[in-house]
Design a protein around this nucleic acid. Structure first.
Length: 591
RNA sequence: CGGGGUAUAGCGCAGCUUGGUAGCGCGCCUCGUUCGGGACGAGGAGGUCGGGAGUUCGAAUCUCCCUACCCCGACCA
């Protein structure tokens, strides 16, 4: 039986909802796929549910093909596992917390690493049981500070999350690759353009992690790519260090007065005026060393000041800093911080002063000093002398000052060289639709997931976690597959395969629509039939275009000539087709 | 959490400056006409004007407080 527009639970809207900003959000609401219930929380109507079911079906097929088995955990979970892993506190305000009648703590799970790990621990204890890959499709809850763009970033969202369990790193690598391959197939089938980028492994340390991003101007992630194939989230870009320079024969540092040089620009102007380079080339901002004071707030609340030295033509990228210093939070130092550290002369901070080392573990302040990777041994800098209105020229790294380490947190710019030498980087925005991650033993360690190996020794299992944002994907597809009249779904996820529009006052257009629907269904197609009488053609056409079934068959005025009209929404074509050929024509379009 | 904005019928909005008993379009219901691009006529249903307090003879409109939501940033599949 076809689904009839006369009965379908839907109301299309003529105007854009006032609270929608991005096109996918407007269209999904206007076409009657979803309705907002609360900020970032949506109800799914029949059309939306059908799309969601088809997306999920594709994911399930490819997960099974990759050897993963489906399970299902509750969204509502007790506090304990998250307490053990530390996330009860780490997740902070983003966690939806609630209490049962006995006042025990519960949460709406933001992700399920803990309970997956614990269930495997419960059931398995031998290397013979591994490798194992299990997944679920489940709603997740995160109390986002700011939900955005409809279902693109909600507080409730559906996610496919998979976890792999292996006895050793080699096994993890194989499991990871299998999942990565599956993701490529899934996104290809969904009709999503994507790039795979190196992701920030964050506090987990050296683990391999990649994100699948759908390039989009409304994306919240910035990534880079090079002509030679390098691609990374901007947070994960590593800056290549130039070769060290011999310090032999470099002139000694010169301290000079530098009144009224509150900015890098004014400093550069003053230096060019009073201390021009001997080779006649002008000094630039890149010749200065800017020392930025940051406050790190460590888990538990300890506040630590660090100073980061970077070329004066660069800014600190706070996102990159968060990634580099995680799990600590990063913020610019406040007046209060400066007050507590009188050794720092604001505006003239530098690692060195005529009195000796200012920054670094061995210095008078003891403040940790980290430098940009470009600040290699032998490079010479103009920087603050740590005395009021005085700078120093020719301060040489590794000769005049020593850093405690590297901090790769300067902003990444278009034109920067890729770390693998594959050419200049370009920047773009993307929406994160999937993430594959070699977790390693982080969760297995804290939750005690160990198995006996073939020598009878207990070994900790190594894990991977792999996520796909199911509801987010629907927004991404809607964003990419539309025209100025409405949605245009890829065939693989469309709510119906064919939309038949019967229009006209002649009863025959309705009986013929019914008959055609039956014909298409015999060919295995899901059919939406617009059988509404007393609805004008314009309304029916408008609804069909808004709803976005990719193939529309119009049974109308052409019927007296034995002709119907076939719309191919994706191609933008409309062709008159003899009634006897329409089934084959549609089948041809669908293959 | 910082900045900006909005809140009046199911949806989109006007009315507020200059207080006087609530309005437009769409949608919805009835009847008739119409039927290939969001038709037409006639009739109708539907609103504690976000909440509270105040000023006033009288408040959607003026004052104060609160709340919710949206957008931009900070934060995250």
């Amino acid at each position: 039986m076809p689904t009839r527009m006369s009965h379908l639970f839907v109301r299309t809207l003529r105007e854009d909802p006032a609270d929608a900003e991005v096109e996918s959000h407007k269209l999904l609401v206007r076409a009657g796929y979803v309705r907002r219930q609360a900020p970032g929380i949506f109800a799914w109507l029949p059309l939306g549910l059908r799309v969601k079911a088809r997306v999920e079906a594709i994911i399930r097929e490819e997960m099974e093909r990759a050897g993963s088995q489906e399970v299902h955990f509750p969204a509502l979970l007790p506090r304990e596992p998250y307490e053990i892993s530390g996330r009860w506190t780490e997740y902070g305000d983003n966690l939806f917390r609630l209490h049962d009648r006995k006042d025990a703590d519960y949460l709406l799970a933001p992700t399920h690493e803990e309970v997956f790990t614990l269930l495997v621990k419960d059931l398995y204890n031998s290397y013979k049981d591994l490798p194992l890959s299990i997944y679920q499709i489940q709603d997740k809850y995160r109390d986002e500070a700011r939900p955005r763009a409809g279902i693109l970033r909600g507080r409730e969202f559906t996610m496919k999350d998979a976890y792999s369990f292996d006895i050793d790193d080699e096994g993890l690598g194989i499991s990871y690759q299998a999942m990565r391959d599956a993701y490529e197939r899934i996104f290809a089938r969904l009709g999503i353009e994507f790039v795979i980028v190196k992701a920030d492994a964050g506090a987990m340390g050296g683990s391999r992690s990649e994100e699948f991003l759908a390039p989009s101007p409304i994306g919240e992630d910035t990534f880079v790519r090079s002509p030679g194939g390098y691609a990374a989230n901007v947070e994960a870009v590593t800056t290549p260090a130039p070769p060290a320079i011999s310090i032999e024969g470099l002139p000694a540092p010169v301290v000079f007065d530098s009144p009224n040089t509150p900015t890098i620009d004014t400093l550069v102007a003053l230096v060019n005026d009073r201390h021009p380079r001997e080779d006649g080339i002008a000094w630039t901002a890149g010749d200065t060393l800017k020392n930025v004071v940051l406050a790190l707030i460590h888990p538990g609340g300890r506040r630590e000041l660090v100073v980061v030295g970077l070329p004066g033509d660069r800014e600190v990228d706070l996102k990159r800093a968060e990634a580099a210093f995680g799990p600590a939070e990063v913020e610019p130092a406040t007046e209060l911080d400066f007050a507590k550290h009188p050794g720092l002369v604001k505006g003239y901070i530098g690692p060195w002063s005529p009195a000796g080392a200012v920054l670094g573990a061995e210095s008078v302040t003891g403040i940790r000093y980290l430098v940009d990777p470009r600040v290699v041994a032998g490079t010479s800098w103009i920087t603050g002398a740590n005395e009021n209105e005085r700078h120093v020229l020719g301060l040489v790294a590794e000769r005049d000052f020593v850093a405690d380490g590297i901090a790769d947190i300067a902003d990444v710019r278009a034109g920067d060289e890729a770390p693998d030498g594959s050419g200049p980087l370009e920047l773009a925005r993307g929406i994160e639709i999937g993430h594959v991650f070699q977790l390693g033993r982080k969760y297995a360690d804290v939750l005690g997931l160990k198995v006996l190996d073939e020598n009878g020794k207990l070994v900790t299992v190594t894990m991977g976690s792999y996520g796909i944002g199911v509801t987010r994907i629907i927004a991404v597809i809607a964003e990419a597959h539309r025209d100025d009249r409405g949605l245009v779904w890829p065939q693989s996820v469309a709510p119906f395969d064919i939309h038949i529009v019967s229009t006209g006052k002649d009863e025959q257009v309705y009986s013929e629509g019914e008959r055609l629907a039956g014909e298409f269904e015999k060919r295995g197609c899901d059919v939406l039939l617009d059988d509404r009488v007393k609805v004008s053609p314009g309304v029916k056409f408008g609804d069909a275009e808004l709803i976005g079934v990719p193939i529309v068959v119009v049974v109308g005025k052409g019927l007296v000539d034995g002709v119907v009209e076939l719309w191919d929404r994706a191609a933008g074509t409309r062709n008159r087709v003899p009634l006897g050929e329409i089934v084959d024509a549609v089948v041809a379009l669908r293959s």
